[in-house]
């Protein structure tokens, strides 16, 4: 269950994809926030976060995702998620994340809908 924590970034001309691996808690969440904020500061405001390799997300991790949404909202950016499990998607909808960010089954559709 304690997967290695990792964050991969794939940047394209007009968007970036951030892929996380491991338990999305405060530790991985802070790394994720740091990388997302760096992209946003550099002017990249079209982001996809791929959670396919993140099997568990706790409420602190969700708080950090909301902070990223807020940072993008301030710059009129867009954030789409993909690779969520059924439980993760249900939790995101319950936490109102789906009101402020898109949820898509795969990376391709998440990018296409930025």
């Amino acid at each position: 269950m304690l997967d290695k924590l990792d964050i991969q970034i794939r940047e394209a001309k007009e968007h970036a994809v951030i892929e996380t691996t491991g338990y999305l808690n405060d530790a991985l969440g802070e790394q994720l926030a740091e990388k997302a904020q760096a992209l946003i500061q550099d002017g990249c405001t079209q982001l996809v976060i791929n959670l396919e390799k993140t099997t568990l997300i706790n409420s602190i991790g969700i708080s950090i995702l909301i902070e990223i949404i807020e940072a993008l909202t301030e710059r009129e950016g867009t954030l789409n998620f993909c690779g969520l499990s059924a439980t993760q998607e249900r939790t995101f909808r319950m936490m109102a994340i789906a009101k402020y960010a898109g949820i898509f089954p795969d990376e391709e559709s998440a990018i296409a809908n930025l």
Binding site: S63, I66, T91, A96
Partner: peptide, 19 residues
């Protein structure tokens, strides 16, 4: 709003009740 509604960590209880 997103700015105020979900930041508090007490939301864990909401998750537990829902699941």
């Amino acid at each position: 709003t997103v700015h105020t509604d979900l930041r508090k960590r007490g939301r864990g209880l909401q998750i537990i009740r829902a699941l």
